[in-house]
């Protein structure tokens, strides 16, 4: 698919199912935040917290927003993940870790896609 130069490239996006889950969470609890986890067990999953629950450090990177909620990643992890776009989605089953559920018996998942060379060139921090 051809992109126009004006079209921005997002480091993180969300599927309609994820956006719907976020809007329910926000309506129910107020704003939420996401942090991309790594390593072991539930690693590689996005963890959804009430906004402010997880303390953001100076080396964390704000990848973008999903449904107006911030999505962060550890700065060191960012360095090894930055060639991929993260796509927030929803999967079946309650969260196995500390994340808020994506409504009912659902959990948030991160899907990934490797950026094309063209997209990488268009990123602020390619």
């Amino acid at each position: 698919m051809k992109r126009t130069a004006a079209e921005p490239v997002w480091r993180v996006t969300a599927t309609p199912a994820a956006l719907e889950a976020i809007s329910h969470l926000v309506a129910e609890r107020g704003s939420v935040m996401f942090f991309q986890s790594g390593g072991c067990c539930d690693g590689s999953l996005p963890i959804c917290f009430d906004n402010g629950e997880f303390i953001i450090g100076g080396h964390d990177v704000l990848l973008g927003t999903v449904g107006r909620c911030p999505f962060y990643i550890d700065g060191r992890q960012y360095q090894v993940w930055r060639h991929t776009q993260l796509i927030l989605d929803v999967g079946d089953g309650a969260p196995e870790g500390f994340s808020l559920p994506a409504g009912g018996d659902k959990h948030f998942v991160t899907r990934s896609r490797v950026f094309s060379a063209e997209e990488r060139a268009a990123l602020d921090d390619p």
Binding site: F35, Q36, S37, G38, G39, C40, C41, D42, G43, L45, I47, F54, I55, D74, G97, F98
Partner: peptide, 13 residues
């Protein structure tokens, strides 16, 4: 705690 890194950070917090 034994588990993944973000929850580890949360636990330490």
């Amino acid at each position: 705690f034994t588990g993944e890194t973000t929850t580890g950070r949360l636990i330490m917090q």
